[in-house]
Structures are given as C-alpha cells and as structure tokens.
Amino acid sequence: MTTLVSHTFWMTNRRLKVLVKQPAFVLILLVQPAIWLFLFGNLFRRVVELPHFGAASYLDYLVPGVVVMTAVSSNMWAGMGMLEEIERGTMNRLLTTPVARSAIMNAAVVEQALSTTVQVVAIILLGLVAGAEYPGGPAGLTVLTLAAILLGTIFSALSNTIGMLARQRETIIGINSMLLLPLTFLSSAFMAETLMPEWMRTVAAANPVNWALDAARAAMSTDPDGETVLIRGGWLLAAAVAMLLLSTRTFRAYQKSV
C-alpha cells in the first residue's frame, strides 16, 4: 500500500513537471470555461423568467453547470496522454519496472483532478466577479469542487480505458464529440429539470453529470440538503472507483497486443 502511494506520488510528480512546462496549455484550461461562462450567461440570461424555472439569477444557476461541463470536457481527453506514453515508449519502459500498474492510472487521474480543481476555482472566482452569489458558502463550494473531481475521474478513467484498448486518437476524438453535448444537455447544467420533457428527465437520472449537479446544487442552495449530497456523491464515488479499476484492468489487454 505504501509503495502504491509513493509510486502514485512520483508518477504524478513526473506528469506535473511536464504540465508546468506548458504554460500555453494551462492558459487554455482557464480561458475555455471563462468563454462558456460568458456565452451561456448572456445567451440564456432570461430563461429564469420562464415559469417553474426555480432560480432567481441565471448566473448563480450557471456556475455549477459550467463547472461540470468543464470537468467532463477536460477530463475526457486524458486518454490522449496514455496514447502519447505508449507512442513515446515510456509506457513500455514503466511496465518493465516494479511500478504498480494502478499507480500509472492513478497518476493520470490525479493530474487531471488537480487541473480540474484549478479550473473550478477559476470559474467560482469569475462567477463572483460577474456578480454570482453562493448562498451555500464555502461548504457548498467544496461539494461543488469534489463533485467535479469525482465526475472528472469517471471520464478521465473512461478515456484512459478507451485509449489503452483502441490505441487510436480518432476513437477518442469520435467518442468525445459524440458524448459531450448530450451528456451536458441531458442534465440540469443549463436548463432546470422541471422544464425538461418527461423522457429527458428519466435519462438525466442515469447521467453522472446530473448526479454531480444534484449534489452541487443541493449543497450550494440557501437551504442545503445533506442527504442528496451524500446519495449523489456516493454514486459518483462508486462510479469513479469502478472506472478506475476498469482502466487498470486494461493493462492485461495491452500485454497481449504489445
């Protein structure tokens, strides 16, 4: 167990050192959610006036929406990093050392979690500057961040799994462009669930993006609902752990094809 932790630490350290050498990439990570916040904030400003929308300020409503969309859209590219490791030969070198296989996957996910956290904090601050209010206070914002990290973990581990199995960039690109918008719009990210058609609400109930939003909105409201936070958070955690385990299993398939 201690070697797993230390290996995960050193493998994460290795990736972060590369990340900080790419300031342009870090900048893009921050600019993208700012654009979404601005676009959606202006485009949908008046939907709160619809009957039964249930929120007073669209900006307040939008912040968790942009947070989850960002978490999904950045993490779903994680598999590209795996492909790069394979192409560079670093993956094969690591696999002949005693490094724990799960440490390789954990490190990829932890790196993503750290950049997700930076993005979430940036969105929260931007929202604040634009005049958003967070009645749930620091506790609500913490739940929002954790939900984004867990949601991100589900999608980065999924993306790593696809990368290891398909071994093609095109597959990741195809799946991502197919998934991002439906996942986002089949949730309460930008539109209140009360205003969705019945079938959409059913689908949204099975959508992890919506679990993250339910947890976050429940924690961020004036009257936080701890039970919803725990239940939805539990689902997210279970799905994240399951995806992480699945992604580690792909090393067996890789061993056959290498």
């Binding site: 030969g89 670093t90 094969n92 070198r93 690591l94 050392t97 005693p98």
Partner: peptide, 22 residues
C-alpha cells in the same frame, strides 16, 4: 528496449532519478 523509453520532457538527471525511485 529497442525503442528508447525516455521522458523527452524531463532532464537526464530527472529521468535517472525517477527510474531509481521506482
């Protein structure tokens, strides 16, 4: 290996040190 497995973005010293740590 026949194909190098170095971390291209890391220094020579960092490459060696990480390998040792593993």
């Amino acid at each position: 290996a026949q194909r190098s497995g170095l971390d291209p973005m890391a220094s020579g010293r960092d490459n060696l040190a990480l390998q040792g740590r593993l």
